[in-house]
Amino acid sequence: MNIMDHAVDLPVWAAILVSFFLVVGSGLTLIGTIGFSRLPSFYERIHAPTLGTSWGTGGIVMASMIFFTVLATRPVIHEILIGIFVTVTTPVTLMLLARAALHRDRAEGNPDVLAEVSPDEPKSGPALGE
């Protein structure tokens, strides 16, 4: 394990904490992606990656923060930028994708989606939430 030589000074409690967050984060990401490959329809699949982007990312960001803070003996918090960034951007991408999917399904007249459209909604324009 030569590659881990920089972690010699890490106390055991910090190692356990880092390992816990790593396992939780990567495990949740894996579960999310398993769901993503197993769920049957697109609108169900869109829920699965949020597991990876909420606590999957959160866990690994926490692990990295604890690891570098304990090693450097000063607060290293720049990883939290990734957490904030992912939290803010994921809803935007998911919303845009879901609206694109809705638009495509409606344009094709897909029955399970069309049934949910309220009657006075313009069918052609996707620019509703703007």
Binding site: G32, Y43, E44, I46, H47, A48, T50, L51, T53, S54, T87, V88, T90, P91, L94, M95, A98, R99, L102, E116, S118, D120, E121, P126, L128, G129
Partner: peptide
Amino acid sequence: AVVVTSTPGTAWLEYNSLNRTVLIHVL
């Protein structure tokens, strides 16, 4: 919208500003 979408299990699909309703997909 950010809160609803970043909670796994609910996804904000689109907001209808005419009759002020929102379409949400729930797992």
